[in-house]
């Protein structure tokens, strides 16, 4: 019985400690953004890494998501004789939900995992200790550019995803099934309002922050991982954890933001 209680206590303490550590990490990252010297080039480089280099995968995912929405939407709406609403169904689904969520999930897979592995390897090879010993704040030097880049890149990638997805839906609905182009766009214009775009924007901003925060923190605290964060296996295990945790966090926060903003 005592052993059981001890186990519960240990687990609770561990989760509280981890949550506190993650919270402090986020605060330090945010402080890093406002700590001089301010350097633009590292931010641009990270925007290029997180944003520009994710463009192809976003174009590809956005196009096929829009196309499958067009396909599914057309067959569903046809049952009610409402094919004319295809444009609004595709646009609303993309702008409010699928755009931000799928963009975030794709960027987590491509850039989030890389951020975690990069910082984890830096931790393992004492490069982060070296920064600290040189009185260079790792939060300002390493984390802040990544965080800013995530917050800048995610909304832009989401916008690309939305536009390409709407075009994909158009291609299938209008090009394949003969839905009227005017009806497709008119439906979209009349149903998508600023509040929908705003929701998508807020989500993409939050997801940008979430994915960099979790990936960077998991890498930074690699040495404190309970399962042992050492060596190549430690980095790979922690990177997997970071991807899973970021993806789950995106889905949970998607629900929370939707429920608050609806």
């Amino acid at each position: 019985m005592l052993a059981f209680l001890e186990k519960i206590g240990t687990e609770t303490l561990w989760y509280l400690e981890t949550a506190g550590r993650m919270g402090l990490f986020l605060l330090r990252m945010l402080r890093g953004i406002f700590t001089p010297p301010f350097k633009l080039f590292p931010v641009i480089r990270q925007v290029h890494f997180i944003g520009a280099r994710s463009t192809f995968v976003i174009l590809f995912t956005g196009a096929f998501t829009g196309m499958v929405l067009g396909l599914q939407g057309y067959y569903t709406l046809r049952k009610f004789g409402s094919e004319g609403f295809l444009g609004s169904a595709v646009a609303l689904s993309l702008v409010r939900e699928l755009g931000p969520v799928l963009t975030a999930l794709m960027v987590i897979g491509r850039a989030g995992s890389a951020i975690c592995a990069e910082i984890g390897i830096m931790r393992n090879s004492e490069q982060i200790d070296a920064l600290e010993c040189m009185a260079i704040d790792p939060y300002r030097y390493l984390m802040a550019p990544k965080l800013l880049a995530g917050i800048v890149a995610l909304p832009l990638l989401t916008a690309i995803f939305d536009v390409v997805g709407i075009a994909g839906g158009y291609l299938v609905g209008v090009g394949l099934f003969g839905v009227s182009p005017g009806a497709y766009f008119q439906g979209m214009y009349s149903s998508v309002v600023w509040a929908d775009v705003e929701m998508g924007l807020v989500k993409s901003l939050v997801f940008g922050l979430l994915l960099v925060w979790i990936a960077a923190a998991k890498g930074y605290y690699l040495h404190l991982e309970r399962s042992g964060g050492f060596g190549a296996e430690g980095v790979s295990r922690t990177t997997t954890d970071a991807v899973v945790l970021s993806s789950v966090a995106v889905l949970v926060w998607d629900y929370l933001i939707t429920s608050i903003m609806l």
Binding site: Q127, D129, A135
Partner: peptide, 14 residues
Amino acid sequence: RRHFGVLFQNAALF
């Protein structure tokens, strides 16, 4: 730390 220089075991180069 501004007065420190450190040579790490594995050099810890970036």
